[in-house]
């Protein structure tokens, strides 16, 4: 048939959605409430102002669900009053995704030397040290960070969540039209 025949798939897929919003009070609560109120998952969420002149923040949400649920999430996000632009980076082409993490290792000399070796191998940066501790900064895909942390087995971890952008010329900026 010519018409949009969406087959209801039950397979769950991970999607990265980028949203440009007016940076006004409550906008993050609104987005989070939309997910919690309807029982959708948030795997990761980052938010920060990206355009001071236009008062715009960019929210990057990593969520997972069936195709139908992802479509619902996008439609619900898009109709919020403060939402200016929205892109499903996962379906709209190739994407670069990065995450940053800080990891602290505590231990004796042997443990610290071992940690330095792992960090060197994985390209992590040493940003703080004492006699008993080393703190590393690592940037990469979520999978890269997962494997670094698996190897390092640190005592404390802080992860920033995913930030993402489409590859090539596609952009999500205030000047583009609302979808």
């Amino acid at each position: 048939m010519l018409y949009e025949q969406r087959i209801a798939e039950d397979t769950t897929r991970r999607h990265t959605i980028a949203v440009l919003v007016d940076n006004e009070p409550g906008v993050l609560a609104r987005v989070i409430g939309l997910f919690s109120g309807r029982g959708y998952n948030i795997d990761s969420l980052t938010v920060a102002e990206v355009d001071r002149a236009e008062h715009l923040s960019r929210i990057t949400i990593v969520t997972s669900g069936t195709e139908q649920i992802i479509e619902q999430i996008k439609a619900l996000l898009a109709k919020q009053v403060p939402v200016r632009q929205l892109a499903d980076l996962t379906t709209e082409g190739q994407v670069v995704e990065r995450e940053m993490a800080l990891a602290k290792v505590v231990g004796d000399r042997a443990r610290l030397i071992d940690a330095l070796r792992v960090a060197d191998f994985m390209g992590a940066r040493l940003i703080d040290r004492t006699l008993e501790t080393l703190t590393f900064e690592v940037t990469g895909s979520s999978e890269d960070i997962d494997s670094f942390l698996r190897l390092l087995e640190p005592e404390e971890v802080s992860r920033a969540g995913v930030v993402a952008m489409a590859r090539g010329t596609r952009m999500l900026t205030a000047s583009e039209l609302r979808p």
């Binding site: 018409y3 949009e4 969406r6 139908q68 479509e71 619902q72 439609a75 619900l76 109709k79």
Partner: peptide
């Protein structure tokens, strides 16, 4: 049936029932 669904709210489309022509 083939279903046509006219709605001003995109989040009403395919929420409960899959339609062929939104």
């Amino acid at each position: 049936s083939v279903k046509i669904h006219v709605d001003i709210d995109p989040s009403s489309i395919n929420k409960n029932i899959q339609v062929q022509l939104p």
